[in-house]
Amino acid sequence: MKKWFVLERFMFSREVSRRLAYKFDFFFSLFTISILQIIIPLYVLLLYGVSDGFPGWSVGQALLLVSYISLGESISAVFFQGIIWNTVDNVKKGTMDTWLLAPMHPLAYFINRSVDVEDTGKIVTSAAMTGYALFLLEATILEIAFLLLYLIVPIVFFTTLAILASATSILFIDSYRIYEFVNLTSFLSKYPLSIYPALVQTLFFTLVPLAAIGVVPILLLYQSASWILLASALVVFVLCALSILWWNNTLKNYGSAGG
């Protein structure tokens, strides 16, 4: 584990150096990605400015929901989600072979090699918006600490999607669209649950744990929901474990490329 963190730190610094070889592209990407990240929180503020917003949800809560999920998604994007593009690219070119020669668990090494510094802009923007939402909610230190700790759940959720997409790429090579579809579905988590029918709400707390990545901590902290809802977070970890098992299994079927 220590080695993974050492490599992750090393790869992050090397990735920054690599991107700085093309400075303009790097800074422009950082800028545009940061700006795009503000759109949804701005939309929430606009919505509450012209209407009553989502029933039962204050502007602070709704803003916290979108920003908090985006924060988890951004952290996952920088440190984990790069495996999607890297797997497709390396399986296609046959260069995945060289990565399999690293004395580490292949998935851990793949994640190390896939750091994507471009998305750090997203982290900054999402963190700023989350901070603003917490300010509106007059959050206590304890609430902030809980939210920071709970951040592991959305990070694990989005990383699970990336692992599944990577495994699919080992099997079927070009499979970006599957990831896009799953990622779009996860967008549903950015709305307060009250807008969905009861059946969908149940589904989001159980088999498809979209509620666990944002709605649950807000319900617990600001709407006095039952702590039993935390069980839905466990589903995220179970899905993650299953995705790793599947990834390992697909690697056994990896056929490499010719030559």
Partner: peptide
């Protein structure tokens, strides 16, 4: 593998050597 590089295209090779040290 002559046709599959273990180095980083945009960085000096010395950086890749440090990866081997950690690895």
């Amino acid at each position: 593998f002559g046709q599959k590089s273990q180095l980083w295209w945009d960085l000096p090779a010395i950086d890749a050597f440090t990866l081997a040290q950690h690895l």
